[in-house]
Amino acid sequence: MTTIGFIRHGITEWNELGKSQGIIDIPLNSTGKQQAVALAHRLALEEEWDMIAVSPLTRARETAQIIADKLNLPITVIDERIREINCGLIEGTTEEERIQRWGTNWRELNLGMEPRGDVSQRGIEFLEEIVQNYPGKRILVVSHGALIGLTLQRLMPETFSKTNMDNTSITILKNIERKWECILFNCTKHLELQ
């Protein structure tokens, strides 16, 4: 049995402003760092983990490093496949700005966004490789909201028709004999103590 703990990175200034980040490399803000510390304390008390895999984007790497330092764990894998969705022309814009530039139907336009199916496919490929390379391990995967959500929808469509991942949420999946089970979804109880 391999266990995956999917973690969405801590909050950034752009998250708070409602700006689409995509693959633009935005760091955590002070609140995001505090969220990551709170999650690291929770993980140190509740579960034992073997390693960390992380997206190459700064906000994910900063979150992962805070956790790694607290748990004394190696960041074993940095993988481009678990970076955030490329949002094309909408990166750096708010919903209001998108409506102003492209109209209320902006979602129907070709604005250079990476197809959702491509995002979930790279998430699935990453998971399959992790399970194959690290059987029986407990692996924290620090990534991004759209990547995690779309991967969950593709992996377990009957369970996840919609997902909304909160900053520093943890979602725990178990892979038992090639079958996936979700035992915890989008949990942020560590933030209630802040």
Rank of each mutant, 00 (worst) to 15 (best):
residue 74 P to R: 14
residue 130 I to L: 14
residue 187 C to N: 15
residue 167 N to A: 09
residue 4 I to W: 03
residue 80 E to D: 13
residue 131 V to I: 15
residue 38 A to Q: 06
residue 171 T to D: 05
residue 186 N to A: 13
residue 188 T to D: 04
residue 106 W to G: 05
residue 145 G to D: 09
residue 69 D to I: 13
residue 74 P to D: 14
residue 147 L to C: 12
residue 41 H to A: 02
residue 143 S to K: 04
residue 38 A to Y: 06
residue 116 R to S: 06
residue 76 T to D: 08
residue 85 I to P: 00
residue 39 L to W: 03
residue 123 G to E: 02
residue 131 V to Q: 07
residue 5 G to M: 13
residue 3 T to I: 15
residue 163 T to Q: 06
residue 61 R to L: 14
residue 159 T to F: 10
residue 48 E to W: 03
residue 144 H to S: 09
residue 94 T to F: 10
residue 81 R to A: 05
residue 98 R to N: 11
residue 31 T to M: 02
residue 162 K to Q: 10
residue 75 I to H: 05
residue 100 Q to S: 13
residue 162 K to F: 15
residue 99 I to C: 03
residue 98 R to A: 04
residue 114 E to T: 03
residue 91 E to A: 07
residue 167 N to F: 11
residue 122 R to P: 04
residue 110 N to D: 13
residue 61 R to G: 03
residue 90 I to A: 08
residue 132 Q to A: 11
residue 95 E to D: 11
residue 1 M to N: 08
residue 189 K to E: 12
residue 110 N to Y: 04
residue 156 M to S: 03
residue 95 E to C: 05
residue 80 E to I: 13
residue 128 E to L: 14
residue 92 G to R: 11
residue 76 T to E: 14
residue 119 V to W: 09
residue 174 K to N: 14
residue 94 T to G: 07
residue 93 T to I: 10
residue 21 Q to C: 12
residue 138 R to P: 00
residue 111 L to H: 06
residue 1 M to I: 12
residue 56 P to D: 02
residue 132 Q to T: 12
residue 160 F to V: 11
residue 86 N to Y: 15
residue 167 N to G: 06
residue 171 T to G: 06
residue 57 L to T: 04
residue 133 N to C: 07
residue 78 I to F: 05
residue 169 S to K: 08
residue 10 G to S: 12
residue 46 E to H: 10
residue 153 Q to P: 02
residue 115 P to R: 11
residue 153 Q to A: 00
residue 131 V to G: 03
residue 6 F to T: 01
residue 181 E to H: 13
residue 85 I to E: 00
residue 122 R to S: 05
residue 164 N to H: 11
residue 115 P to M: 05
residue 76 T to N: 07
residue 74 P to M: 14
residue 135 P to D: 12
residue 111 L to Q: 04
residue 193 L to H: 14
residue 159 T to A: 11
residue 24 I to T: 03
residue 9 H to K: 04
residue 82 I to Q: 01
residue 116 R to M: 06
residue 77 V to T: 09
residue 67 I to H: 06
residue 87 C to T: 09
residue 161 S to L: 04
residue 176 I to T: 13
residue 125 E to P: 01
residue 93 T to F: 15
residue 56 P to N: 01
residue 186 N to D: 13
residue 8 R to D: 03
residue 101 R to E: 08
residue 151 T to E: 07
residue 33 K to E: 15
residue 78 I to Q: 09
residue 72 N to D: 12
residue 51 M to D: 02
residue 191 L to Q: 09
residue 119 V to N: 07
residue 140 L to A: 14
residue 58 T to E: 08
residue 72 N to G: 12
residue 155 L to S: 07
residue 194 Q to I: 15
residue 177 E to M: 10
